[in-house]
Amino acid sequence: MSYEGPEFDPRPSPPSRRGRRALIAALVVALAAAGVAVQRAVGGDGDGAAPAASSGSPDARATPGGSPGAASGSPSVSGTSSPPASSTARPPAKRGPLSGKVVVIDPGHNTGNAAHTAEINRTVRIGNGAKECDTTGTSTDAGYAEAKFTLDVSRRLRALLEQQGATVRLTQDGDRPWGPCIDERARIGNEAKADAVVSVHADGSAAGNRGFHVILPGTVTQGGADTRGIVGPSRELGERIAGNFVRATGSAPSDYVGDGTGLVTREDLGGLNLSKVPKVFIECGNMRNGKDAALLTSAAWRQKAAQGISGGIVGFLRG
């Protein structure tokens, strides 16, 4: 502003001691308020994901070609995990075509898993066998963690579905130090009576392999698991997601699994075996392939990925 004009005194008299104290107090309050505003403005890391920990080695329980194994969830171990507040539904942002529908989004792995190896290495039952509670997931060669990717895409996906009126739950929202285990992840979807569940992942296959694929549940009827009621609707959900993912992202289906269909059926993933509601996994690309990695690390492409998954879910729920 300009300090010129008839109302400006270039030689103001100094304020009294009491006036100086009042001025200082007012300045402190103003600076404190500004500091809060700045902190809120810059508190995120730019893409909405929690700070990444070391991704560790990829899950040895891989798909053909080295895909990380599935994550689903389990109870806390010796009180070391905080309650999964993210499993509580947020109210839908608005009424819309998905009003009354419940969707559970499962961000694969957790950026804190690498610091909690004892917890994630314990085994849990998956119906037809046993697997580790969870894994660290994979990462790009430059160190961008799968767990950071999955949480970012899941948050974007949640926003899109809430705009359609859906009630959305995340199995974890960066709000717990590790996990949840694969059986707990499945249980969150079951207890929510979800109309659809999608577990978001990225693959860690050989560097020459490219593309996305959607993993469907096979028929498993062992050890308390019974997927017979969800195999059919899960396939429909997966087909719709695959088709919309191609249109939204321009990515091609996997060239190393699925015979070009982008669909793979598996019976060794606890998150699918233990589900009682329609559920699929999506491996959005191969983090170890340079071209796929360039997409996965792009915020603009991650938004397209979320749009593709959302489109498939909306199509499935609306019939």
Score class of each variant (00 low, 15 high):
Ala32Glu: 08
Asn110Ile: 04
Arg176Glu: 06
Gly65Cys: 05
Pro15Gln: 08
Leu295Trp: 10
Asn289Trp: 09
Ile105Ala: 02
Asn110Gln: 07
Asp195Pro: 15
Asp203Gln: 05
Gly137Gln: 07
Ala62Arg: 13
Arg302Met: 02
Tyr256Ala: 14
Lys148Leu: 05
Thr140Glu: 01
Pro177Thr: 13
Thr167Val: 06
Ser16Met: 05
Ala85Thr: 07
Ser13Gln: 13
Lys276Thr: 14
Ala192His: 02
Gly5Thr: 01
Phe245Gly: 05
Val220Met: 03
Val280Ile: 09
Arg158Gln: 14
Lys279Ala: 13
Pro10Leu: 09
Ala294Phe: 10
Arg266Cys: 04
Leu151Tyr: 01
Arg156Gln: 14
Pro177Met: 06
Thr221Gln: 10
Gln163Thr: 15
Pro92Phe: 03
Ile24Arg: 12
Ala30Tyr: 08
Gly127Cys: 07
Ala242Thr: 08
Arg185Thr: 04
Ala192Lys: 05
Val29Ile: 15
Ser67Leu: 14
Arg240Ile: 04
Arg318Pro: 00
Arg155Phe: 02
Ala25Glu: 10
Ala252Trp: 00
Gln39Phe: 13
Met1Leu: 12
Ala142Gln: 07
Arg247Gln: 15
Val231Arg: 10
Glu267Cys: 12
Ala93Gly: 09
Leu274His: 08
Met287Cys: 00
Ala306Lys: 09
Glu184Pro: 00
Ala294Arg: 11
Ile120His: 00
Ser54Tyr: 12
Ser2Thr: 00
Leu23His: 12
Pro64Gln: 05
Arg235Leu: 11
Gly56Pro: 01
Ala299Pro: 07
Thr135Cys: 14
Gly189Ser: 00
Leu269Ile: 15
Gly44Val: 05
Gly66Val: 03
Gly189Asn: 02
Gly238Leu: 00
Ala300Leu: 06
Gly43Thr: 10
Gly270Met: 06
Tyr256Leu: 04
Cys284Thr: 12
Gly165Pro: 09
Glu283Val: 05
Gln163Ala: 15
Ile309Tyr: 06
Ala248Pro: 10
Ala248Cys: 06
Met287Ser: 06
Ala30His: 04
Ala194Arg: 11
Ala305Met: 07
Ala159Ile: 03
Pro278Tyr: 05
Gly308Ser: 04
Arg90Tyr: 09
Asp226Arg: 01
Gly73Gln: 03
Ala71Phe: 00
Val28Ser: 13
Val36Asp: 05
Ser16Glu: 00
Gln163Phe: 02
Ile126Arg: 10
Asn113Thr: 03
Gly211Cys: 03
